[in-house]
Design a protein around this nucleic acid. Structure first.
Lengths: 113, 113
DNA sequence: TCTCAATGCATACATTGTTGGCATGAAGAA
DNA sequence: TTCTTCATGCCAACAATGTATGCATTGAGA
């Protein structure tokens, strides 16, 4: 984490990234997160886009990261793993709940939740 | 509608506004929409923020608007009513579905949908 | 050695998000 | 009638988020 900025609502992509980190669980490093966004989010973004967002989420204290030695296949070279911090999780919940309330009673015929 | 720009993913606030219009139904004019965002979205934004967003959604063809005579209490002065167009609805669905898939399997303990 | 693949990060620019204040016109008070 | 107050809508400006390209590093394997 770099500094502690405002407590503004999460952007759309920020939500996706936060959720992707949660989905990736322990192995949440760049490519894995990107993969989640691609698969579930059904959207392909450039790696750079992800890293910039991760950096910003980090700066706001919503995620934490540790640089750990990678798997042997990778020659043990380090990777940067991310985790969602309580603040980030809380904010994510708030955003999702707002959307949920916003949707209440509407018949949108979504294919998923 | 002004012009037809890109087909990028909807921003967070844009989703809220689109949903708010749907919630407001027939009476979807500025203040009514704002009220929905405030109540359900649990967030207070300046009127200007809403109008700018509506304008942009309009420019992208996601919403349509008609200026109609307002109620007698208002001396019949006109109001601008908005409706969500098919394109906007489709995009909204896509965004919500992506979030839905992104959430699948996660135990977030949300208070609502 | 040389090349390739996997990562992460920096740069730059486009799009969104947000606020504050201006303007108009009817209603109601003075 | 004149003044003040709402209710609306909109514009200018600026902050934050979204996104693509491309550079740099470092083992693996040819």
């Amino acid at each position: 984490m770099k500094k502690t900025r405002a407590l503004l609502p999460l952007g759309e992509f920020e939500m996706l990234v936060l959720l992707a980190i949660l989905q990736a669980g322990d192995g949440a490093y760049g490519s894995a997160i990107l993969e989640q966004v691609h698969q579930r989010g059904g959207r392909s973004v450039a790696r750079g886009a992800l890293y910039v967002t991760l950096e910003r989420l980090d700066a706001k204290g919503y995620v934490a990261s540790r640089t750990e030695a990678g798997p042997p296949v990778r020659g043990g070279r380090p990777r940067r793993y991310y985790t969602v911090r309580p603040t980030g999780l809380a904010l994510l919940r708030r955003s999702l709940e707002a959307l949920g309330r916003m949707r209440e009673g509407l018949e949108l015929g979504l294919k998923h939740s």
